[in-house]
Amino acid sequence: MRIEERFVNATVLVGLLGVPLWALMIEEPFTITLATRAVILALAAVGLNVILGVGGLVSFGHAIFFGIGGYAMGILAFHAQTYSELDLGLFSTSGTNSMPVIWLVAMGFSAFSAFLIGLLTLRTSGVYFIMITLAFGQMFYYFAISWPSYGGEDGLSIYVRNDFPGLNTLVPFQFFALCFVILCVVLFIYARLQASPFGLALNSARQSRARAETVGLDPMRIRLLAFVISGAITGLAGALFADLNRFVSPTMFSWQLSGELIVLIIIGGVGRLMGPVIGACLFVALEHFLGGFTEFWHVFLGLILLAIVLFARGGVIGLLTGKEGAHV
């Protein structure tokens, strides 16, 4: 059976909106929180999908940007919460509780560190790129642990969720809706980006670096820009994730998280618009149901992943539409 990819995509979005609406009606706020978690993880994976799916570079360090986004929220809200000054040398600020400001800061810092890391790591490709991004991720993780000013290993708790003008973000459904709208906007940008000259150039650099160079493209610059965009989106997701939990800790930088983001994309389908979204929904559902069934649900997750790699290349979307995904 072959199903149109567009039809699959629409069904997923409707389903993702429908489940929390249904939960709202039967008053099950926990389900809404689960859906919010899925939306935010999906957003982080959409960011990774830019460099991994379209660019063909397997970044095993995207938790860096997730963590930076999380700590951007944590640090700004911490100073606002404790009425303390954050001294940055040139100027000082007393933090903020405003989500839009936090998002800008999160995206800015993520993009900037993606630029620096990209300058170094994009000199390499293939296995080197995988290992080096993994190692840089570990560097940020250990830095977060050994830097005591913001909680060190214990992390930072933020007592009240940050504000968004016109919304009460502490109401689960309102926060979900906010995250859902952001996901839709980013998906739209992703789709436009993929079809733009930049997206095509990135795609061609993945398929054949030599040919891309022959027609006058500069793969390094294209990939660096893609890495920066990718990092910024994942950073935004990190800020939202921190706000969802009202807690940041070094585990947001952990290599497991980088691995899980890759897993989300592969479950759904590499390089597909909705691949990360489907992956995130399935992942959160598995985590919830298998996790309720057995404490050792990761064993089953591992077996499912093995089955996908060995038998179902192209992920869920590949299975449904009968097409394999982009070859990385």
Binding site: L52, V58, F60, G126, V127, I130, G259, I262, V263, I266, V270, L301, G302, L303, L305, L306, I308, V309, L310, R313, V328
Partner: peptide
Amino acid sequence: HLDQVLATFA
């Protein structure tokens, strides 16, 4: 490499 990463992660 992506498949190798994923399978060994599993």
